[in-house]
Nucleic acid binder design. Structure first.
Lengths: 120, 120
DNA sequence: TTCTAATATAAGTCAATACTTATATAACGG
DNA sequence: CCGTTATATAAGTATTGACTTATATTAGAA
């Protein structure tokens, strides 16, 4: 399944958002998604399978538990495709470095603002 | 329709790739896509409608012709969603500026390589 | 007005996807 | 081995998205 097809599903996108911050057990995903979308354990498990098989998630076993985490492969593929259009709204790399340098210069030269006045 | 749902279709992705470099007339898109995917004018037009209505393409009339170009709104929404995961594989902004500066320094200090030797 | 060119929309069809229920598989403890 | 926990997979169903053919709409010229 193609990466954008994977992400077309709101449940799968949500799963990735949940996995982003930290690894989760299948059962935990089932609980969270079940609560949010009202779908069964089997449905969630099928979504996890799609994510696994398409390079969006990795799984490791811990006894009966299956722990899932984000795999960046699929996400990078999406990023790469979007990358061709990014110049439409992003500055060039050199311009970016200049902007960063300017930011540093301005912070270094900024006048010290004294705190004062009456309390509101 | 959600942005990822829009991009789930390979025809619509291809249309955007074609529109990226420059504006095209509906008929031109129909020809190119028809040749590549073997689908009808009506099908292509329906895809263009989806792109228009979801913030991925804009259209202007020129007599009977309809000229299409990329609208970055939808693309930026995709980029924003992926953005939350980008730290997984991208260096921080400061590190990026350092890298750029290092690149410049190394190019400035690089030894001059003389051309020489026999022709092959 | 009619005709032509260009393209959008309407209506119908069918295959695939996301869901469900049922059950198989993986793992552990007594 | 049996029973329990945890989760993956199988099989069936209904909805919807992408397709088609047909036709409506937009625009211009004679």
């Amino acid at each position: 399944m193609h990466v954008f097809e994977v992400l077309a599903d709101p449940v799968r996108r949500r799963i990735l958002e949940l996995l982003g911050p930290k690894e989760m057990a299948s059962g935990e995903v089932v609980e969270a998604i079940g609560a949010e979308f009202g779908i069964t354990q089997a449905a969630v498990s099928q979504h996890l399978k799609v994510l696994r098989e398409s390079g969006f998630a990795t799984v490791r076993a811990e006894a009966q538990r299956r722990l899932y985490s984000v795999d960046v492969t699929g996400l990078q593929a999406v990023d790469a495709w979007i990358g061709r259009f990014r110049t439409f709204w992003e500055p060039k790399l050199d311009a970016l470095a200049t902007e960063i340098a300017r930011g540093k210069r301005e912070r270094r030269n900024a006048p010290v603002i004294k705190r004062g006045g009456k309390r509101a």
